[in-house]
Each structure stands twice: as structure tokens, then as C-alpha cells.
Design a protein around this nucleic acid. Structure first.
Lengths: 215, 215
DNA sequence: TTACACTTGTGAAATAGCTCACAATCTTGA
DNA sequence: TCAAGATTGTGAGCTATTTCACAAGTGTAA
């Protein structure tokens, strides 16, 4: 009975957990009270046994013959993923992408709050991005002494990515969401996830049949 | 000797291929002529044997004792991922994220060209997003008769995601990059990749130690 | 010419992840 | 109270992916 051992949970399981949570939030809004693993499969495309196995890493959640209480499962998953409480997030890069992220309604809805924005461009520092003042990247460690954020987002051009990562790490950030198309070198106790639009498109392009290009 | 069999290539291999390509573009710019699988490991964090095995799905690329010709490998990977020629891309959603995507320099650099933007908001239709005119989503099939794009990007709120997907499919799109936090139902011959910022942050949050929240 | 250091490509072994299938549990209704 | 039907949690088997380890190819320097 492996209850919580954070480090033995397979990454694919973790990624699906986030998917289940998304689905459950949706179900809550639609007022559904209970759900079976089979319905989860229909909804998410993820195999019902897989769903049950994924949950089993963290304990027992359902009742045989009945299914899962939507509200309870949502809460427990939120707790496992640590999104049940507000998480402060630091953002580096006040460009188009950074702007889109600050304005993204989904983040707030799921308890992630971008509380500070930084840039290294002196034309931007001091200006506002939505309701936040853009600060100098050099101020990151200082600012984070108060905020104590542990999550950072890098939304800068690739050549500035590593530098941004270094500054975040120096400020005590332990988890980085990286949009810069660069492989970041960080200490072992810092987790990085990369999101690369171009790579995603390339993978999609691979699946296209040969034939005509265009443009 | 499985040369090209597109359908037997494991997805993880494909994802790494895109990573290698990113690294090689970088190496080309830095003027490096050849590289060994060990150096690839140092650069990307991906195991050297893994790199060689990944390539082996597509043929032979290196020379024993020497390594790989950076320029040649880059070209061949680009060809495999079908990014060696310009790809037209349709975008649905002219919000903040859509705007960031159109303005994203990396796309153009890797031969992906957003050639048309659509929205269902009548306040936006007819306006401009960068150098593109925002069109009515209803015009997608018609517009794509000329363009013949096969890749589409969905950057709309979650409740509009499935609708956008349906329209893209109706217009002949075969590959979709989906930023809406919804599970899309599409025909078997259409490939979807989901990018969900909130899920990524949730996965990061999971890895944080317990302790204080904030905000 | 030979020995040495390096590096690829790839079967085979090891690891990781997924799915099946079923005992155990629970509800409902007669 | 009992039988039928639904559904969970999980060991066991299966499939997929990663890593190992080595024969074979290549360049360098004596």
C-alpha cells in the first residue's frame, strides 16, 4: 500500500492526474455528484483501469458498486497536486507571451497567481503589464524574500533562458515552467518542465502525409 | 532495418527528435561541424544510447569513430519532421494567446507560418492582428480551400474548443495543436496535441515540498 | 603497418508502464 | 434475506521503452 511516496509516482501518472482534475472541475460545474472509472474513460480517453491504478498510488478513493464522489475526488486530487491553496508565481519576460500568461483566466481559476513580472529591457522596466509593474530582473532575489514564491515561469527569448533560470534559482525558486526553447541547467532540487510550441508543431507535422506544402 | 515506417516510431522518440533538432540548430549557429552522441547527452540530458537508438528508426546517420555531421543531421531531422519546407497554419482565437502566437518569432524561424486567424467574436472580426485580418470562424472551410493548410491551432476558451476543432476538421485540417483545456473528440485520422499551462503548473506544484503557501 | 582511442549501430537484457481479469464490496429491489 | 448488477482496487501478465554492452568502422601517431 504505497500511500504518498512522492518520488515513486510515474510521471505519466502525474500528468494524467492533472487531466483528471480538469475533468472533475468540469463535472463539478455541471453538478454531477458521482462518477465511475468507465465514465472517466469516456470523458478523457484514458483507460478505466489506468485511472484506477493511477489513483491507487495515493490511497483509496472510490466505493465498489458506486464509483467516486466527484467533489471529494476533486478535492483530494487538488490536495495531491498542491493546487488547493493559492500558489504565488514569478514571471520573467514581459513580452507577448508573458502578457498572455498574466491575462490568462485559467491560472487564477486554479489558484496560480502571477504576483510579479520581471524583464531585463530597460524600456519595459517600470511600465505596467495588466495590473503589475514590470521590475528589473536583478531585483528577483530581493523581491522574492518577501513573496517566498517557489514557482517561476520563463517567457524570454532562448538566449536569455539560462540567465533567467539562474536568477530564479538564486531567488529560491524550486519549480520552473520554461517556454524558452533551451535546455536549462539547474540544481538537482529544482524541477523544470519545458513547453515548446515549435516542437509541438514539428511533432504534428511528422504525422502529416507527404504531398504538397504551400505558402 | 526499419527505415521510415512512420507508424512504428514511439512517441517518446518523436518528442526527443524535436529536441535534437533544436539543439542542432543551436550548434549550427555556433559553427560546430561534427558532434558525438556523448556530446548530445551532455547538451540535452538525453542518454547517448537513446539518441543513437532514436536515430536508428530512420536509418544511419553517423560515422563510427567520428560522430555526426551537424549540418547533415539537422537537415535530415528537419526532413523527417517535415519542417524543411514552409507549413501554412490556421489559428482560431484572436485573444492574448493567439496574439502571442502570431507574434512568436520561433514559429517563423522553423518554417511554420500562421496564414489566417479566425474568431467568433463580432467585435474582433474585421480587425487586424499584427499583419493578418481576423476572419469569421464560419469562413474557415472556405478560406482553407485556397490555403490547403493541414495544421491548425486552437487558442480559444475551453467551452469553445470542441466547436473550433469541428470547424478545423471540416476544413480538412489533419493536425491540431490545442491550447484549450478540453479533451477534443476528433476523427481517427486527425492528430491532436494538447498544451495546458495550468496542468503543467500543477505537475510542478506536486514536486514542491509541503510547507508554507502565500499570497 | 600496427596499435590505440574513439564512436557508431544494434541485439539483448533490464526497467517501466499499461491492461486484463477477478475477488471483494456495495446498492437495489423483490 | 437474498440475488442481481455495478464498480472498485490490485496482482499478474503483457507491451513498450530504455539502457547495456559489444562488434565493427575510422582516424591518428609512432
Amino acid at each position: 500500500m504505497p500511500k504518498n511516496n512522492s518520488h515513486k509516482v510515474p510521471m505519466p501518472t502525474l500528468e494524467r492526474l492533472a487531466t483528471y482534475l480538469t475533468a472533475l472541475v468540469d463535472l463539478t460545474e455541471r453538478g454531477m455528484a458521482t462518477i465511475s472509472s468507465n465514465e472517466i474513460e469516456r470523458l478523457t480517453g484514458i483507460n478505466a483501469a489506468q485511472f484506477r491504478k493511477d489513483l491507487s498510488y495515493f490511497g483509496e478513493f472510490g466505493r465498489p458498486g458506486i464509483g467516486y464522489d466527484v467533489e471529494e475526488l476533486r478535492e483530494r486530487l487538488a490536495k495531491i497536486l498542491k493546487v488547493e491553496r493559492s500558489q504565488p508565481v514569478l514571471l520573467i519576460g514581459a513580452g507577448n507571451l508573458g502578457s498572455a500568461l498574466v491575462g490568462f483566466p485559467g491560472l487564477r481559476a486554479q489558484n496560480f497567481h502571477i504576483v510579479a513580472v520581471f524583464d531585463n529591457n530597460y524600456n519595459k522596466i517600470g511600465r505596467r503589464l495588466w495590473d503589475l509593474e514590470i521590475c528589473d530582473v536583478e531585483d528577483i532575489p530581493n523581491t522574492n524574500k518577501d513573496i517566498q514564491a517557489r514557482i517561476g515561469i520563463i517567457a524570454v527569448p532562448s538566449n536569455a533562458g539560462q540567465d533567467a533560470a539562474n536568477k530564479l534559482v538564486a531567488a529560491g525558486i524550486k519549480a520552473i515552467l520554461n517556454f524558452a526553447p533551451t535546455i536549462l541547467k539547474v540544481p538537482d532540487d529544482v524541477v523544470v518542465r519545458n513547453v515548446d510550441f515549435v516542437q509541438e508543431l514539428a511533432i504534428l507535422a511528422f504525422h502529416l502525409s507527404e504531398e504538397q506544402p504551400s505558402v
